[in-house]
């Protein structure tokens, strides 16, 4: 067992623990907090896999912005909302069985597929640091998708403001 492998298993345990806690909490605000733990754990996995820029962006966007946005939404709506405890009705049982079957199927497929030996001699960053390499690729090879994503972001921003603003006829 080497250091990164132990770190990987510890972080995976934290992520899955937070995700299961998220499902088992009753208060909605605790659920939003637990999801923050999952996002931070995913960032740690990215750092472990050598994707520094994506890891930091994950912390900034998911753990920073999205979790806080969730908190705002919960506080602005029904902030004392609670989930009912697990009931044995048809929908819950069918969902649980379906998800477990899907999980077992994916795990079996992963287990039976011969994965290629990772080639560790290639430096994906091409000699630069990781953010520099990502910037080069974004602005050269992926310039058009990058611009389209910025367009999508501005549309989403304006759309969110228009949807959430008060209208006269509501009152």
């Amino acid at each position: 067992m080497s250091g990164p492998l132990i770190a990987f298993y510890v972080i995976s345990l934290c992520i899955l623990g937070c995700a299961v806690l998220m499902l088992s909490f009753r208060k909605v605000i605790y659920m939003a907090l637990a999801i923050g733990g999952v996002f931070v754990g995913c960032a740690a996995i990215y750092l472990l896999l050598g994707a520094e820029f994506v890891g930091v962006a994950q912390i900034l966007i998911y753990a920073g912005a999205i979790t806080i946005l969730m908190m705002f939404a919960i506080m602005l709506t029904n902030h004392e909302a609670t989930e009912p405890p697990f009931q044995w009705n048809a929908r819950n049982v069918a969902s649980a069985v379906g998800c477990i079957l899907l999980g077992i199927l994916i795990l079996l497929v992963i287990r039976s597929t011969p994965w290629p030996q990772p080639d560790t001699s290639v430096d994906v960053n091409g000699g630069n640091s990781n953010p520099v390499a990502i910037g080069m690729a974004l602005f050269k090879q992926y310039a058009i998708p990058f611009e389209l994503v910025s367009l999508l972001l501005i549309v989403a921003l304006v759309g969110a403001v228009i949807l959430a603003q008060h209208r006269k006829e509501d009152e």
Binding site: Y62, I66, F72, T77, L152, A156, A160, L163, A164
Partner: peptide, 26 residues
């Protein structure tokens, strides 16, 4: 690097989705 750049795009789209979703919720 392609996988990392794809995941950056996914993160951006997810942020846009959650902003519009929460506005709809409000």
């Amino acid at each position: 690097l392609n996988g990392q750049i794809f995941s950056l795009f996914t993160i951006t789209v997810a942020a846009a989705e959650i902003a519009v979703g929460l506005a709809l919720l409000l």
